[in-house]
């Protein structure tokens, strides 16, 4: 299968410039990055893609077996790197995709110039045995699955989100209506489990490429101590706390987020 169409790859920005790959997290698709892309495409080759099962990826490529753990997604990222052949890239992983970056860089460090872990969490569930606090209990995750189910009727039926004007990029309108944040409920359930029940704390120490941990100042999903944990576990990593609040700094504070990515990728790329 053609991995570019499988993952609905978009390549934009300056040809020949250092490459930055932006990986969206659980819930939505590559449109999450649309506010930071204009900031980055002046100085970088920008690669956007949808995880299989999300957005405009090829849903036929999704299988419960392949995507029952982060490994299937990591395989995809490495296949994309090979296929695009842009040299060592700076991988920007938001939320769950941050851990995909960690695993991919541990497996093939030569493919990566650096990692930006945006609002990362290596483990969402608390682990009283080690005193680790991820912020959630297993019951909380079950509750999220219920929330997904509660909106299942709506998502699968009448609710096609109406897009307000996008005066800068009107072509986004139609695309967003059809895809943005709409996921097959079956796929969403499996991805939610992978996202919120994976434990990658032990994998952090294996990262050898330059790494920037960028966390938000008030993030209900990845609290500050989790960012500090990631920073402490990855040798030589840098930690920045963005002024952005919430879990999606690329939407809440796109300029600040893009600046942090650009400064890091410019230095390491």
């Amino acid at each position: 299968m053609d991995v570019r169409s499988r993952n609905h790859v978009t390549v934009t920005g300056r040809t020949g410039a250092p490459a930055v790959m932006l990986a969206h997290g659980f819930g939505c698709d590559q449109n999450m990055w649309r506010l930071v892309v204009p900031e980055l495409e002046r100085d970088f080759t920008v690669v956007l893609f949808d995880h299989v099962g999300a957005g405009n990826s090829e849903l036929t490529a999704w299988s419960r077996d392949r995507y029952a753990s982060l490994d299937g997604y990591v395989d995809d990222v490495l296949e994309l790197c090979r296929e695009l052949d842009l040299g060592p890239i700076t991988f920007v992983g938001h939320s769950v995709s941050a851990m995909m970056g960690v695993l991919a860089a541990a497996r093939r460090p030569e493919a990566f110039a650096g990692l930006v872990l945006l609002a990362p969490s290596p483990c969402f569930v608390d682990d009283p045995a080690t005193g680790y606090r991820g912020g959630f209990s297993a019951e909380d995750i079950d509750e999220l699955l219920e929330s997904l189910d509660a909106n299942y009727l709506g998502w699968s039926g009448a609710m096609a989100p109406v897009i307000m004007g996008n005066p800068d990029r009107p072509e986004l309108g139609e695309e967003l209506t059809n895809s943005f944040c709409r996921t097959d409920p079956e796929i969403a359930r499996v991805f939610a489990r992978v996202t919120f029940l994976s434990d990658n704390r032990a994998d952090l120490a294996a990262v050898t490429v330059p790494t920037l941990v960028a966390q938000c100042s008030h993030d209900a999903i990845a609290p500050p101590e989790v960012g500090a944990f990631v920073h402490a576990q990855i040798p030589g990593s840098r930690l920045v706390t963005l002024n952005a609040t919430g879990h999606c700094p690329q939407l809440a504070a796109p300029e600040e987020t893009a600046a942090a990515i650009a400064a890091f990728a410019g230095a390491s790329g």
Partner: peptide, 29 residues
């Protein structure tokens, strides 16, 4: 919100609201 609802809010509700300027009829607790 309940914790599960908060996760849903952060991963679906808030991004959609930012993108679209509005979001309609979402079930939460």
């Amino acid at each position: 919100l309940t914790v599960g609802g908060r996760l849903y809010h952060e991963t679906h509700f808030a991004p959609l609201l930012r993108m679209q300027g509005e979001i309609n009829g979402i079930a939460l607790e």
